[in-house]
Design a protein around this nucleic acid. Structure first.
Lengths: 329, 329
DNA sequence: CACCATATGTTAACCGGTTAACATCTTAAA
DNA sequence: TTTAAGATGTTAACCGGTTAACATATGGTG
């Protein structure tokens, strides 16, 4: 690897001068610039970012901690986050916590040691105080951690309400909500609140079951959904907390001979791209995933640059009605 | 952020001594170690990895360039790659090329500037010579670049053959293969070869259409599949080059009233996790994704450590027959 | 007692950049 | 003609670690 010294020697100037060209500081003739750039080209020179980062105390790296990149929701968060970050000159260091406390903790330490400029937390299994002691710009997705840490989230409460109201409006008499982990203090929990408030208001029979206690295990979904229908064969409406779980519900309905939407109506959550291949076509609450990702990165970079950012960033959800809730008006 | 100097001062020793403790070099009393570790704890000290990397000329970072992390296949590659890399003390810098040449090129330069120790190329839209001039350990997934660059791939040819034979065996008379991009010189192209050799051998009517010319655009799939059935209404077998495309085929069949598997039989490729939610349940050629990812990382780390690695690494595929190819024995 | 392993210290160079401070020379404007 | 801006150079410190080289002190062993 060529260094700045090699470039300087080739051009016949000092490293200071080359550095000046690189950073465009001070007075520089067009001719000099041309010669320096040409030498860089010829030597295939790239400035060593480690050295620059060390000196500048800025790595231009953002840590992204999520539970599981292979889950479509986080995959989509990641591509949009990466895309926007790249545009702004930042790189993404990828961490999958698998909702494992010690792994998440280790990752946070690793990111700090790696001198990342900030962290986007899409996984948050630790205690609030752990996050407050990180001492680095942070943005969380879907969780409110403290007064000082900004968060980005879609309007889960509204989503829960929309989904539940739709099921009631479409004639459902007994509705189940399959929620994500309710103990992690996620804002996603307010989907549950929206659900509960709505079924209570309309005095509708309801059941709630919880998933995602230890990560996103599809096998776990299968067991939960099977049990749910075994214990409550009279369910006629399901509000699932992700499109994947909704797909699992549809699969189970098919297995036990319940027709969707005739016998059971289903609403998912997320609006992931692969969701469009679910059969019958899934009614879902669409989160503005791209916007969530972009906002998270933007808020983080703003913080890195020392700008004040709003603490609460709730983005709107959208009900997309397809086949799984049709009929029975 | 506390530095090694702060730790040294607190313990009352020299930085050299602290560095010795950190790296466990030379003679060190248990007492000293204890005192140093305690001071690190108290100061919440983490050694600056930028400084270490700079000196060691080793960053312990691996660049991962893939077309799109939100595509389930690459999402799964990524989580397994990250998981194994982490176990071996490496971090992952994530790059999505979106199959865009200039972006891929920029990413390669960025990774070099960031002093990554090696690159896993899951996207390869550039000319072979560009990769040969990278001058860094590389492993490719699904593409053979040169004699010196090792590659990991599943046995696509076998997969193409298995899929096609199954369709023929199940009675299909006219089969379409919806392939990925055939111009990128991917090993995935040998699925096409397996398909062609098989239909030729059994003298079966066939059609081939190509997707993924400019990234993974699901809208593109829709158009291609619609056109395919419009032009060839007599198709009774489809071998799709991904589970996602197969799902699109199923969706189109449903739209135009073709029954699967009665009228049309379908085989997918990949064996992605979300594939299990496709209805009817999809017959597919399962790639050993976890093994591919792990092997790629392992080969890269071996190269980084200066070990000779085998150039060709073809892993076996597995036919998983489900509902979309049933009947007509 | 000599010797060596153990345990720590000091100093300085190095990794590859950036930057401040100061010097020198040319050229154009006042 | 003076003055200032433009265009470079030199030197050295700094970022936060690592490491080689060499010094010193202690304690146990042959």
């Amino acid at each position: 690897m060529a260094t700045i010294k090699d470039v300087a020697e080739r051009v016949g100037v000092s490293v200071t001068t080359v550095s000046r060209v690189l950073n465009n500081r001070g007075y520089l003739s067009e001719d000099l610039k041309r010669r320096v750039y040409q030498a860089m080209e010829e030597l295939n020179y790239q400035p060593n970012e480690l050295a620059r980062s060390l000196f500048r105390k800025k790595s231009n790296i953002i840590g992204l901690i999520i539970p599981d990149i292979s889950h479509p929701f986080f995959g989509e968060i990641a591509i949009h986050a990466e895309s926007y970050a790249y545009k702004k000159g930042y790189k993404i260091l990828l961490c999958n916590s698998r909702l494992n406390k010690s792994k998440e903790k280790e990752y946070i330490n690793m990111l700090k040691a790696s001198q990342v400029d900030g962290i986007i937390m899409g996984s948050h299994t630790l205690d609030t105080k752990e996050y407050n002691s990180i001492n680095l710009p942070i943005v969380t997705i879907d969780r409110q951690l403290s007064d000082s840490i900004p968060y980005v989230s879609s309007d889960h409460y509204k989503g829960g309400e929309l989904a539940t109201k739709l099921l009631i409006q479409r004639g459902c008499k007994k509705i189940a909500h399959i929620s994500g982990n309710l103990k992690l203090h996620l804002l996603a929990k307010t989907r549950y609140d929206g659900f509960m408030d709505t079924v209570t208001k309309f005095q509708i029979l309801h059941v709630v079951v919880e998933t995602d206690l230890n990560g996103f295990k599809y096998e776990e979904y299968e067991q939960i959904v099977t049990d749910l229908f075994r214990e409550h064969p009279d369910l006629d409406g399901i509000f699932a907390s992700s499109d994947i779980i909704a797909a699992q519900v549809l699969k189970e309905c098919r297995r036990i001979g319940k027709r969707v939407p005739e016998d059971v109506k289903v609403v998912g959550f997320d609006g992931i791209r692969v969701g469009e291949y679910i059969t019958p076509e899934l009614t879902t609450i669409q989160q503005p995933i791209k916007d969530i990702a972009k906002t998270a990165v933007k808020l983080l970079i703003d913080q890195i640059n020392g700008t004040e950012v709003p603490r609460e960033n709730i983005l709107p959800v959208k009900l997309i009605e397809k086949e799984t809730t049709l009929g029975n008006e």
